[in-house]
Design a protein around this nucleic acid. Structure first.
Length: 282
DNA sequence: CTTGCGTCCTGCTCGC
DNA sequence: TGCGAGCAGGACGCAA
């Protein structure tokens, strides 16, 4: 469920807590969530890439992925997938199920801070890389432009050369980084574009409107701390506040907030899709 | 190369 | 009230 706004909210609350602290130890409770930089699960885990014994310099984000950078150059990418989240835990606490990776940070004399990777469905994962260059694979390098800053000139070529449905392209992380099923439906509704229209049929005006609404939705959702849908939680346990603003997502059969028509549900690329047949004509 | 579909995985919702 | 089926979906691998 975490899309870019949720991941950015997690980053903002996590960075000030652990930046500048040393990684004291890492405990891997389930090794099959550990992947290599290309995203493959691998049998053996190389502990030299985990940053243990060095300082965490920053928590960054690219698309929907979190990036822990360490002073020794190693980088850890965390993808939250569907059901993943991070918990910040101070002091000794019992470890509930589904806590797959536990980082323990500290500095000389201060109390330790735990960061727990929780992911019941295990669609997410933790990728260990020796260096940022190691991330040149599709994990980081092949991502498209960031959704919150999206400009028409960044996606014009991609859209022109594909007949795929516009919603499918919005969900393609190599085309645009950060949009998931919720915000794809929301952006298309606000831009009044039918989700199944071939991307190459969009004219310059459509692209401009679409980019404007993608930027606005991403920024609004980040401000609100992400969507409250399902199990999204910030590392301090608080829910985001964006949920009340969904106009179409999950509202199939209800009235369109713009025109009162009945919102229609279809499946597109095996994803549930909700749109307004009146506001978003083909 | 492009496109579409199956797979992974568990928790929640719904219907009987 | 209890139980099982079905659904939810991000990204990869593979087939057409």
């Amino acid at each position: 469920m975490p899309e870019l706004p949720e991941v950015e909210s997690v980053r903002r609350s996590l960075d000030p807590v652990i930046r500048g602290l040393d990684l004291v130890r890492i405990r891997i409770c389930r090794r099959d969530v550990i992947r290599d930089p290309r995203g493959r699960r691998r049998g053996s885990v190389d502990r030299s890439n985990m940053g243990v014994g060095t300082t965490l310099t920053s928590v960054d984000r690219r698309g929907k992925q979190l990036l822990l950078r360490f002073e020794n150059g190693s980088a850890t990418v965390i993808r939250l997938g569907m059901s993943g989240r991070l918990e910040v835990v101070r002091g000794r606490k019992p470890v509930p199920p589904h806590r797959h990776v536990i980082w323990t940070f500290g500095d000389s004399g201060s109390r330790e801070v735990g960061v727990w990777f929780v992911d019941p469905r295990r669609f997410g994962g933790v990728h260990l890389a020796e260096s940022p260059e190691d991330l040149s694979g599709r994990l980081i390098a092949d991502l498209g432009p960031e959704a919150p800053d999206l400009r028409p000139d960044e996606i014009r070529d991609t859209f022109r050369r594909t007949r795929r449905a516009v919603k499918v392209v919005l969900l393609d992380q190599s085309a645009i980084a950060g949009i998931g099923n919720i915000y794809a439906d929301e952006a298309l509704h606000r831009a009044m574009i039918h989700p199944a229209r071939p991307a190459s049929d969009l004219d310059e005006e459509d692209l401009d409107r679409l980019c404007r609404h993608v930027r606005a939705i991403m920024k609004d959702a980040i401000e609100a701390g992400g969507s409250t849908l399902r199990d999204h939680r910030l590392p301090d346990g608080s829910p985001g506040a964006y949920g009340g603003q969904h106009r179409v997502y999950g509202r199939q059969g209800a009235a369109c907030p713009s025109c009162d028509a009945v919102l229609k549900g279809i499946r597109l690329a095996a994803r549930s899709t909700t749109f307004c047949p009146r506001c978003q004509p083909r």
